[in-house]
Amino acid sequence: MHLLLVGAAPVTAADLSHELRGHGFEVGVVDSGAALLATTGLPDLVLLTLDLPDLDGLEVCRRLRARSQVPIIGLSGRDSELDRVLGLQAGLDDYVTGPVRVRELVAVIGAVMRRVRRPAGEPAVAAETIVHGSLHIGLRAREVRVGGRRVAVTPKEFDLLALLASEPGTVFSRRRIMAEVWRDSSGRGTRTIDTHVRALRGKLGAHSWVVNVPGIGFRLGSDR
Rank of each mutant, 00 (worst) to 15 (best):
T12A: 05
T12P: 00
T12S: 05
T12C: 00
A13I: 03
A13H: 05
A14K: 13
A14G: 11
A14H: 13
S17C: 03
E19L: 12
E19N: 08
E19M: 09
L20S: 03
R21Q: 12
G22C: 07
G22E: 06
F25L: 10
V27D: 06
G28R: 10
V29L: 05
V30T: 08
V30Q: 01
A34F: 00
L36A: 04
L37P: 02
L37D: 02
A38L: 09
A38Q: 11
A38R: 10
T39D: 09
T39R: 14
T40L: 10
T40F: 03
T40W: 01
L42A: 01
L45R: 04
V46E: 00
L47H: 04
D51F: 01
P53V: 06
P53W: 09
P53K: 08
D54M: 01
D54C: 03
L55A: 11
D56T: 01
L58D: 01
L58H: 07
V60Q: 06
V60F: 05
R63W: 00
R63F: 00
R63D: 09
R63A: 12
L64V: 01
R65Y: 04
V70L: 00
P71A: 02
P71T: 02
I72P: 02
I73P: 00
I73Q: 00
G74N: 01
R78C: 07
D79P: 00
S80F: 04
E81A: 14
E81R: 14
E81Q: 12
L82R: 14
R84V: 11
V85T: 10
V85M: 12
V85D: 10
L86E: 15
Q89H: 12
L92N: 04
L92W: 08
D94W: 09
Y95I: 03
T97C: 11
T97D: 05
G98A: 15
G98W: 08
P99C: 03
R101Y: 09
E104T: 15
E104N: 13
L105I: 02
V106M: 06
V106R: 10
V106G: 08
A107Y: 08
A107G: 11
A107R: 15
A107V: 04
V108M: 04
V108C: 07
I109M: 10
V112P: 05
M113T: 09
M113Q: 14
R114K: 12
R115F: 13
R115P: 12
R115K: 13
R115L: 14
V116D: 13
V116Y: 14
V116F: 14
V116R: 15
R117K: 15
R117Q: 15
R118M: 11
R118T: 13
P119A: 11
P119N: 07
P119R: 06
A120K: 07
E122I: 15
E122M: 14
E122V: 15
P123Q: 07
A124Q: 13
A124I: 14
V125A: 09
A127Y: 02
E128F: 15
T129G: 07
T129A: 12
T129L: 12
V131A: 10
V131N: 05
H132E: 12
G133L: 08
G133Q: 06
L135G: 02
I137H: 07
I137N: 04
I137T: 05
G138N: 06
G138E: 11
L139Q: 12
R140C: 08
